[in-house]
Amino acid sequence: MPIPSESELHLANLTKSFGAVRAIDGIDLAVPRGSFVALVGASGSGKSTLLKTINRLVAPDDGAILFRGTDVRSGPAPALRRRIGYVFQSIGLFPHMSVAENIGIGPRLAGQPIGTGRIAELLELVELEGGHAARMPHELSGGQRQRVGVARALASDPQLLLMDEPFGALDPVTRDALGRRVRELHGRLGLTTLMVTHDMTEALLLAERVLVMARGRIVADESPRALLAGAGGEEAQALVAVPRDQADAIAELEK
């Protein structure tokens, strides 16, 4: 398969098993630069595992991943991870570091620590006040913590942002607001974004391309508009049916 030159990310014949379970079963995927891709599927469909092979938190059994044309295994894993933003459901702020220290950790590890000006800028990007910089993580609400998590992921100016159920633990209002903000930052900073979610609504509203996974394979690869128009097959349509029926029911109530 020829590699399109504008591919930010290219996965070829990727396979990973845990014991007898095939978590990823021979996946090929090209992600063009600047796209926002959502990976949707039920629990155990392999979507999280797939995401973590990209920043090498999981090592595949077989296959290759090219990031900007270079095999991700060609250098040390920590160096690769510093170039890729990573946001995940349990957030993982370091409880013994202040908000500013948490945000600045990536650049600090790379030997290029950032100053208070840049911290304030990053806080502003995720709609937090500058005063939060000196706080400790346990003093923040869940939504504020995940905003800090996003700011931390953006601190090293990554080209690629990986998000694993990033808004899963947040209340619906915060979830909606932070989702919109991330979508906006994706455009403004020229990121390529991969987001794993089990929520089809979120995928349809934020992504420009939705991949549906089941049993370790990609069973549908469509734009939101195409999915809503009925494309993608049975499994994808079952997932799309949920928000559509909910929307219909709400519209019915409003009559």
Partner: peptide, 27 residues
């Protein structure tokens, strides 16, 4: 130690030594 914190240490690009020094030891 919360698993999320240890995953984050890997995720932000800490080497094994940095993880021990900056996260595991202080916690």
């Amino acid at each position: 130690m919360a698993p999320g914190v240890l995953e984050a240490a890997d995720g932000v690009g800490m080497t094994a030594w940095q993880k021990l020094r900056l996260v595991e030891a202080p916690l």
